[in-house]
Design a binder for these strands. Structure first.
Lengths: 228, 228
DNA sequence: CCATCAACCATTCAAGAATTGGTTTTATTA
DNA sequence: TAATAAAACCAATTCTTGAATGGTTGATGG
C-alpha cells in the first residue's frame, strides 16, 4: 500500500486529511469512514487522526457525534428541549422574548389576516373576559396570541411562538398558581386585546405592533412589580 | 367482582371516570392505566370507556397518544421539526423572522456583553472578511450572529435564533449555491458588522438594534432583488 | 517523555418485540 | 334484526438488545 510511509515522512496529519477530503469529494453532510478504518486507510494512528479531526472540527469544516460518526460541514442545530430550556429561563426573560416576537407578528397579521380569523380573535377575547378561573383565562389568552401568530402567515415565526408558549407553560409549572380567584386583575388585558384586534382588523400594522408592544410591556411591568 | 353490575345501572361512564380520577389522585401529566385494564377495573366495556375518555379529552382534562398512553392535563407542545418547517418556509419569511428577533438581541447584547465577547465578535468579523469561499463566509457570519445572541444573556432568545439558523441552513440546502466565487459581493456586510459591533461595544442598545435592523433589511432587499 | 496500541466507556443507531390508542370485524344476546 | 359486547386487527410509539462509533484511559515500549 501507499499510505504507510506518510507517517515517517512527518507530513502534517491535517494536510493528509485535507487531501483525503478533497479526493473523496464528500457532499455536504456526507459521512466519513469511522476513525478506526480511516486511520488504517491513511496509514496513521488513531490518536494522530483524532488530533487532525479536532483541528478541522474547530474550523467548522466537519462535526462529530458519539455513536453517529463524523460528517462534512457545520454542525446541525439540535432541537431544543423545552423542559431543559425552561429551567434556565426566568419569567422576565420570557417576556423579553415575547416582546421581541409578538409585535412583529401583530404587524404581519394586520397585513394578512382574513375576516374569519378576525372573528375568531374577537371570540377568543370574549372567552378571556368570561373565564371562570385563572387557568382557563390563560388557556384562552394563549389561543388569542396564537391566533394572531397564525394570521401572520409565517411558519417560522408561528413555530417559534408556539415553542415560546411551551417554555412559558413549563416555567409556570414550577411556580405556585393562584388557583381559585378569577382574573379580575387582568381586566386591563381585555382592553389591550381590544385595541390590538381593532388595529389588526383595520389593517394598520404599525398601530397593531405598538398596541401589542404596550400590552406586553404592561404585563412585564406588572411582573417586575412596577404597578402603573 | 363488584364492577360488573355498574353497567346495568346505566350510570354515566363519564361520572364513573371522574370518580376514578378523583380517587386515584393522579398528578399533572400522570398516566392512566391502559384502556384494556382500565375497562376491566371499572367493569365497563372498552368502547364505553373510550366514549367517556373522548369527552374528558375534549374538555382538556386529559390527552391521549397512540402507543404512549392517556395522561392528565393539557397536551404538551410538540418540539418543532426543523426539516419539515424548512419545507414550508421561504427565504423572505426567514428574513422577516430574523428582523423580528435579531435587533432585540443586539439591544440586549449591548447591555450585557463582556469584554471577551466583544473581542470574539471582532475576531469573527475579521474572519468573515478573510473567508476564502462563500461557504466559509456563511459559517463565520452565522457564528457572528450567534455570538451576539449569546451575549444577550437570554436562553430562550438564543435557542430561537439557533433553531432559526437551523431552518435557514435547511432552506438554503435546497437551493443551488455559488460555490466557487469569493463573497466580494457581501462587502457591505463587513461594514454593517463593524457598526453593529461598535454600538454593542459602546453600550448603545438603541443604536445597536437599529444597525442590526438596517443590516438585515439590506440583506432582505438584496434577496428580493431591490439592489440599493 | 512520547507515540502506539489495546481495552474500555458512553452515546447513538438499527431492528424487532411488546405496548397502546384507534378501528374494524365477528360473535352474542335481547 | 338491532344493539352491544368481545375479539381481532391496525398504526403509532416505546422498550429492548446488540452493534457501531466517537471519546477516554492505561499499559507497553521505544
Amino acid at each position: 500500500m501507499d499510505g504507510t510511509q506518510s507517517v515517517k515522512e512527518r507530513r502534517d496529519v491535517v494536510v493528509v486529511l485535507r487531501e483525503f477530503l478533497a479526493a473523496v469529494q464528500l457532499p455536504e453532510n456526507g459521512r466519513l469512514p469511522n476513525e478506526r478504518d480511516l486511520a488504517d486507510r491513511l496509514g496513521i494512528t488513531r490518536a494522530e487522526l483524532r488530533k487532525g479531526l479536532a483541528v478541522l472540527e474547530s474550523e467548522g469544516q466537519l462535526w462529530r457525534r458519539v455513536g453517529t460518526g463524523t460528517f462534512v460541514g457545520p454542525k446541525p442545530p439540535q432541537m431544543l428541549d423545552i423542559a431543559e430550556l425552561a429551567e434556565r429561563t426566568t419569567s422576565l426573560q420570557m417576556m423579553r422574548a415575547r416582546i421581541a416576537l409578538e409585535p412583529e407578528l401583530a404587524h404581519l397579521a394586520a397585513l394578512n389576516i382574513s375576516a374569519a380569523e378576525i372573528a375568531e380573535l374577537q371570540a377568543l377575547n370574549g372567552a378571556c373576559r368570561s373565564a371562570k378561573n385563572w387557568r382557563e383565562y390563560e388557556a384562552y389568552d394563549a389561543r388569542f396570541h396564537h391566533g394572531i401568530a397564525k394570521a401572520a402567515r409565517n411558519p417560522v415565526l408561528l413555530a417559534m411562538l408556539d415553542t415560546l408558549n411551551g417554555v412559558r407553560r413549563a416555567v409556570t409549572w414550577g411556580r405556585p398558581r393562584p388557583e381559585g380567584d378569577r382574573p379580575s386583575t387582568a381586566h386591563h388585558s381585555f382592553t389591550d386585546h381590544d385595541t390590538i384586534v381593532d388595529a389588526i382588523a383595520h389593517g394598520e400594522p404599525v398601530k397593531a405592533a405598538d398596541a401589542m408592544r404596550r400590552h406586553l410591556q404592561t404585563v412585564e411591568d406588572r411582573l417586575v412589580g412596577r404597578m402603573p
